[in-house]
Write a protein that binds this DNA or RNA. Sequence first.
DNA 1: CACTAATGTTAACGATGTCAACATTGCGTG
DNA 2: CACGCAATGTTGACATCGTTAACATTAGTG
Lengths: 213, 213
Amino acid sequence: MTARTEDPYHHGDLRETLLRDALQEIAAAGTEKLSLRALARRAGVSPTAPYRHFPSKRCLLAALITRGFRLLDESISAARKAAGSDLESQLVAMSLAYVRFAQHNPTYYELMFSTVLEDFSEYEDLQQAAEASYGVLLSALEDLVAARPGLDISASELSAVVWSAVHGVASLLLFSHGRAPAKGRGDPLTGLELLAEDPERGIRLLLRGVLSA
Amino acid sequence: MTARTEDPYHHGDLRETLLRDALQEIAAAGTEKLSLRALARRAGVSPTAPYRHFPSKRCLLAALITRGFRLLDESISAARKAAGSDLESQLVAMSLAYVRFAQHNPTYYELMFSTVLEDFSEYEDLQQAAEASYGVLLSALEDLVAARPGLDISASELSAVVWSAVHGVASLLLFSHGRAPAKGRGDPLTGLELLAEDPERGIRLLLRGVLSA
DNA sequence: CACTAATGTTAACGATGTCAACATTGCGTG
DNA sequence: CACGCAATGTTGACATCGTTAACATTAGTG
């Protein structure tokens, strides 16, 4: 008796709770401070309960990062579909979706491109998810290259460059977040603020040179 | 007696040793695994001796990152000087120097743009060093904008975009490092390998669109 | 030479990641 | 429906870590 709705032995949704809370804690305090025991405490379970769902802290992180890549993949794919049939429009739309994903999901994005996991190959799901994200961009550029016989550059090379441009915009925007003291006029980071307000302008500028190859 | 040349009470160069070894350990095992106590052990001093030189682990990291930005600054400045008087050549040279810095000093670079320190403003030296790095690029672009009255874009905006392009190339190259399983032909990351071999090609491609504004 | 600041040391605290042994529960099979 | 196994949670323990406080040694300066 005395055990009404209190403390059911099984949490019911621990795995999901851990992932959700982990993202939140990382957003609030950084990856370094993430603690499995704290997560357990927050979920109301014993300190080592998380180990029934993740063999180690790194595996928890790997699962989170995998989720991030899947979300990115979805965002980009959706943007491509919504962009109609013009290949260049598709490219711009995908690029913009990429940057927007980073802006709306900074924690995921930082995790995905951080070095917390120096090697994806240990985690098959992650590896696949990451390659899939890249694959969307690559396939779009293969279509584009096929439609333009004159190009002197391969689709894979092109996608590396495009990805660089887009990734550069996205990461710098996150980098500048919370770092600019705005010393006065002429200060370094005002350009980044402009870029943050209108990423499409920057993206078009960068893609222009690439697409005129 | 019995204390010949053994264990001089003062290490003599602890601060420098800590910084040097820290970089090495991070390169070998990642920032997460960096331990002040391990550094102390390695330097042959007591577990808390590092605290005489750095108030906290984060301050050690801040010092490292500051050093990284100073090195980056030097690399870029040197490249600009060596590039002669043509402004576009200067820009390409600086960009290439940036990417090369990242390739040759991956540990520094990753630290500098990681989120270990979410806020530079707590560390004045760091803040200055980081702004100085950016300032080199900005000043070069101010000259370039001044020399081309027709441009419809400001120097700060231009430098944000250029920095994005260059930073994108640099970070993606590091990201792909150790992540490519090279599935077969048509695999995603071959484009990045090409980019790694000849970063200048990618940089020129990206800058082309920007400079024709 | 004395004194003070710089540099190191020892001891201790709470927190963490992880493992091993054990408890409880839910579910599918007979 | 009963049984048993797999999934899920718990307790206890260990080594390590970051950090602080109190104390020791040295170096450099008046």
